[in-house]
């Protein structure tokens, strides 16, 4: 794999290979010595044009676990605030001998541009671009579901026959998009639930079912329910009348959570707005995978970085 830009272009074999590789990376987590020397001598820059805590730190931990040297770049306080373009910033950094770029950018397609415009000649990993994709988040979600469902016999398996419901701000969610492609590629049936104003415009281009009645979908006992964060920073219009109304109609409230089957996984990519899209009862329950998702994110990112940075074509 040369770059990881999108989950839409991941073949099933490739995706399962990454999940299997993530399992091998996970075995280092409970050792006294957690590092592997695979990327020793390589330098990775984390190019973050948007705020991020968990994704940036997760990538940094993954890079350090694989012995890479890490440069963290935040747009705030850099020459970007003087008006430097993405192209010039990227070329400046790679001129210093960077071997791979992990990019988070507010513009959809930024990672694709960086990888395909011929500006730089190193692998690019998309850590979230606008409202487009967040492929490593989808991979860690798939990993988390696979691990919970299949346990120690998960190697080599997909998510065939599993039903996953994604709820919330679908229209603005790169997490939802990446999951729609990846989970479907892995054999799961994906249903997206949102107020009509927060469903994507080009619905037919998604391989998923779109609904607006959360209670009707939850009544079908899905294997996993993924609650998305309401992204106030991307909402420039009034998409729903009030937070209270959103929570009542599309939030995982205590009352809805109590109706869920005990084997339905409760997922959230974080950071959570407790009391808005998810209640604390659900977030802190044994069915919740929120903390596991964070832990698994490191393993999945290790697998991705190993894949793009090794190999003779890299």
């Amino acid at each position: 794999m040369r770059h990881l830009l999108s989950t839409a272009d991941l073949a099933r074999d490739e995706a399962i290979g990454l999940l299997d590789s993530s399992e091998d990376m996970a075995t280092t987590a409970d050792r006294a010595h957690k590092k592997l020397p695979a990327l020793r001598g390589l330098t990775i820059v984390n190019l973050f044009f948007e705020d991020s805590t968990r994704t940036r730190i997760s990538f940094e931990v993954a890079e350090k676990r694989l012995s890479a040297d890490v440069i963290n770049f935040a747009a705030k306080g850099s020459s970007v605030s003087k008006g430097e373009s993405l192209k010039d910033t990227a070329q400046t950094l790679t001129a210093m001998g960077v071997d791979a770029v992990v990019i988070r950018h507010g513009a959809s397609g930024a990672a694709y541009q960086l990888a395909n415009r011929g500006w730089i000649d190193v692998p690019v990993v998309n850590a979230g671009d606008g409202t487009h994709e967040h492929p490593t988040q989808a991979l860690l979600d798939a990993y988390t579901i696979r691990k919970r469902v299949h346990g120690s016999s998960s190697r080599g398996k997909g998510l065939d026959g599993l039903r996953v419901t994604i709820v919330g701000d679908i229209a603005h969610s790169r997490v939802a998009r990446s999951n729609a492609w990846l989970l479907t590629t892995l054999g799961a049936e994906v249903t997206m639930v949102a107020p009509p104003t927060l469903l994507p415009h080009a619905r037919e281009s998604f391989p998923v079912v779109m609904e607006s009645d959360l209670d009707a979908v939850l009544a079908t006992n899905p294997d996993a329910v993924m609650m998305l964060r309401i992204q106030k920073e991307r909402m420039h219009h009034a998409f729903f009348p009030s937070e209270r109304e959103f929570s009542q109609l599309w939030g995982l409230t205590a009352e809805r959570f109590a109706r869920l089957s005990e084997r339905t996984l409760v997922m959230h990519p974080g950071p959570m707005n407790r009391g808005l899209e998810i209640c604390s009862e659900a977030a802190d329950s044994p069915q919740s995978t929120v903390i596991e998702q964070v832990a698994n994110g490191v393993f999945v990112r290790m697998a991705v970085l190993y894949s793009v940075l090794t190999g003779s074509e890299a």
Binding site: S21, E23, D24, L36, Y306, S307, T310, G311, A314
Partner: peptide, 22 residues
């Protein structure tokens, strides 16, 4: 004991799939 991550030819060969360490 999987040794993939410790190999000295990771950059010269096609990407090697790792195996389980247990």
């Amino acid at each position: 004991l999987d040794v993939t991550m410790y190999r000295d030819d990771l950059l010269d060969q096609p990407t090697r799939a790792s195996s389980a360490t247990d």
